[in-house]
Design a protein around this nucleic acid. Structure first.
Lengths: 207, 207
DNA sequence: GTCTATACTCGGATAGAC
DNA sequence: GTCTATCCGAGTATAGAC
């Protein structure tokens, strides 16, 4: 989207989005006022209505944009020809990194769904299903090829996504482990959850 | 807690707790007014202040009570002498069932932490750490005994808890699978995540 | 312990000048 | 596109009667 004025750096709409995202994540949609958002941007509250028709539209914009970007990012990351195990590993690393780097947007996307009006809710839910479907597809492929051994692809997909997204609740960039180390650990757990054959030693003695 | 009046069924404080829990879960702490809670109970808003000093105290009561009960429930469920694998399975089933049956309290406990004032927040966080510690302990024991094979007990504990709690986001009591079936599937995934030796076939060929 | 009434503050949103 | 000014409804919480 191009600038409409040449004046100050980022256009106002984008600064409103950024301010709202940060405030909604920190304190919740209902607890944040339009005046606060305006204050963070450096304009009066009335000016926000030149860019978003109301508070609801602002929330809906943030959630839809986030889900659209997430889906597009995975589509461009997913490689066509590789084993299901390799794809699942790629997904695990992608999901962790993408979510950790956008913790505000992720937080809002999970917490503020209930504040969406029905039509907007359905739209965002549908995007979420699309994303979950990516994991189901990987698991189906791995089961079909014999790489994975699992009972229920849908449940396993939900479990894997929940596990990976959970990193956001405790991750701190200056923490004990680097993001790469965290990715390694989770990759192992995700593959094990799917019943992937492990190259390493976990098969010492069955029984 | 005993009744203070013999008049109408449950005492008012308990009915306030129940109404607040349901409303906070459905629409969020900030979005729910004291008038609404009072309306659900069948009293005037001013009457709530006879039982809770303010809205914050009501939220704090709900979160602390929930965490206390959760911790007590696991303590009474945990058996002393059994293998780590068996204990982890018991924990997985316990966690799923307990959380699914109290979805409102669970939801609030995760979502409304940020609305707690600092002192109350620290108190609830400390209880949460206690609960997470139970899982860390099980994993440590299993690693020490050679039952589990994992890189990092703390990370694995967080991943397991996130995976199990995730059931709440999609579980419906009249859904495709029974709670027992769900528990079975998750138990397998949790044990695999911890690198537990499986009796079943997942060890066909290493490499 | 609950009521009615109310103080006081703040919310979203709009009108109209510039 | 942003401002100032404003409408009006709703929020938490308290005072005082019963």
């Amino acid at each position: 989207m191009a600038r409409t004025t040449g004046s100050i750096g980022v256009e106002t709409a984008e600064r409103i989005r950024a301010a709202a995202e940060q405030l909604f994540a920190a304190r919740g949609f209902a607890a944040v006022s339009m005046r606060e958002i305006a204050g963070a941007v450096g304009v009066q509250a009335a000016a926000l209505y030149n860019h978003f028709s109301n508070k609801q539209a602002l929330l809906e914009d943030l959630l839809v944009t986030h889900m659209d970007s997430l889906i597009a990012a995975w589509k461009s990351e997913a490689a066509a020809d590789e084993t299901a195990g390799k794809t699942l590993e790629r997904f695990a690393r992608f999901h962790i990194r993408y979510h950790v780097e956008r913790s505000d947007a992720v937080f809002i996307s999970y917490m503020e769904l209930r504040n969406l009006e029905p039509e907007n809710f359905r739209r965002v839910e549908s995007l979420r299903k699309t994303y979950e479907g990516f994991v189901v597809d990987i698991l189906e492929a791995g089961r079909a090829s014999g790489e994975f051994e699992l009972t229920d692809t849908r449940i396993t997909a939900m479990a894997i996504i929940a596990m990976l997204t959970g990193v956001n609740t405790w991750y701190r960039s200056r923490g004990r482990l680097s993001l790469s180390e965290i990715e390694d650990i989770y990759t192992t757990m995700v593959l094990r959850s799917a019943g992937a054959q492990q190259k390493e030693a976990s098969c010492l003695a069955a029984e």
